[in-house]
Amino acid sequence: MKFADFICCDAIRAHLEAADKEGAIREMVTALVDAKRVDADEFESIVKAILKREELGSTGIGRGVAVPHTKHPSVDRLIGTVAVSPTGVDFASLDGESVHLFFLLISPPDRPGDHLRALENISRQLRDDAFCRFLKQAKTPEEVGQLLEEADNHQFGS
């Protein structure tokens, strides 16, 4: 699976303003609503579902990265967005460090395999330090989109 298969380019954000977990999640889901990828009526329900999953344990996976996600019946295929927080968000991560890079995923309830394959793609690409660093330094959504495209075209690491 490639980033292009699930990342909605017009919902990428390079400057998250929130400093806390809930605020950051709200900004990212808002971006998906603005990009017309999720229905505005489903906004609160999706945000609540993502926060509820976070309560079971943070999706802050270390290295300044988090992958908040949920299953939700309002989507018929896996969708996601990427956001960069220049100041960092306290996400109760594995390594205690604040999060600068987010991959938010929403998948249909009965497609756990797609979710895993998206995570595989994200984790494989992030193992390349240069890719991870460039993404965190990206200043515009276009720059983020370009980096994802380069990763899809195997221009980073393995």
């Binding site: 999953r53 079971l56 344990g57 943070s58 999706t59 802050g60 996976i61 992958v67 996600h69 594995l94 756990p112 395999g113 979710h115 895993l116 995570l119």
Partner: peptide, 16 residues
């Protein structure tokens, strides 16, 4: 588990 070794499960495993 239904979701498989997704992010949170991987975090729990790595922590342990």
């Amino acid at each position: 588990n239904r979701a498989g070794l997704h992010a949170r499960a991987a975090v729990l495993l790595a922590k342990a």
